[in-house]
């Protein structure tokens, strides 16, 4: 695959991830295009979440985790010793598998991230904008001072998205954001993603192939190597092509449901 620079936000080169002595991801090369949705699919344990978490160095939080290779963000390696993970995460936000709002008010949930990142502008405006962008404003505008924990699962997840976009990141990472939600809530999040991609680059990990097919522009298929159980990038390309005419037999097997 050929990528020209500039169009791409991330460029992963020869990435290997380890947990202790176990290699979870091996020899991965991958580029992520700007203002597009890229989906990572594959069976569980294939390393797709691990790769996602290298993009904002969330792996750092696991004491035994180690990364080799390069994760270039606009050409700068995120794993250079002088790169500060705190700054990385402000620019590359993340939405998690289970909705995890803070046990604070809805307003505070959105404002918190902005505040710690030194936001100096009109906070009310920012909160409203972020909630509007997350398609939650109309549902919560009358109860901003109520606890975020009081919302439904789908609303909580949209609150988490609002919280993530409040610090104005460039990229939003989503780690199976709909796996804890019902189909209607899932649909709303998917619609939202199509809206958000106008302004943000989105990378989503999903178990759900239909979801990847519905929302993503590009799809990367990961699989666990039978020999050493390390995750491996099998195929990467335009979503349509991956789902209609996969080049790799293993991708085809997975997509047609023959295994996984």
């Amino acid at each position: 695959m050929n990528y020209t620079n500039g169009k791409y936000v991330f460029d992963i080169q020869n990435l290997n991830c380890y947990y202790g002595s176990f290699r979870a991801v091996k020899d991965t090369d991958l580029s992520i295009e700007s203002k597009k949705i890229t989906a990572f699919i594959g069976p569980s344990g294939c390393g797709k979440s691990t790769v996602l978490r290298t993009f904002n160095r969330m792996n750092d939080l696991i004491p035994s985790a180690r990364v080799t290779g390069e994760v270039l963000f606009h050409g700068q390696n995120l794993y250079d010793p002088d790169v500060d993970p705190v700054e990385v995460r402000r620019r590359i936000g993340m939405v998690f598998q289970k909705p995890n709002p803070f046990p604070k008010s809805i307003y505070e949930n959105v404002a918190w991230g902005a505040r710690i990142n030194g936001f100096k502008g009109n906070m009310d405006e920012l909160v409203e904008q972020s909630l509007r962008q997350a398609a939650l404003w109309d549902e919560v505008k009358d109860k901003l001072d109520q606890s975020g924990l009081g919302l439904s699962g789908g609303q909580q997840q949209r609150l988490c998205i609002a919280r993530t976009i409040a610090p104005r990141p460039e990229v939003i990472l989503m780690d199976e954001p709909c796996s804890a939600l019902d189909p209607i809530a899932t649909l709303k999040i998917e619609d939202l993603m199509r809206q958000l991609v106008k302004n943000y680059t989105i990378i989503i990990v999903t178990h759900n192939m239909q979801q990847a097919a519905r929302v993503s522009d590009y799809t990367a298929y990961f699989l666990m190597d039978r020999d050493d159980r390390a995750g491996l990038l099998i195929e990467y390309g335009v979503t349509n092509e991956i789902f209609t005419k996969p080049k790799d037999q293993r991708t085809e097997d997975y997509i047609t449901g023959r295994f996984g």
Binding site: F119, G121, E125, L126, Q129, R132, Q133, R168
Partner: peptide, 10 residues
């Protein structure tokens, strides 16, 4: 979506 004025505030 209103035009994004908040970016400059960071």
């Amino acid at each position: 979506v209103k035009p994004d004025s908040s970016v400059a505030s960071y």
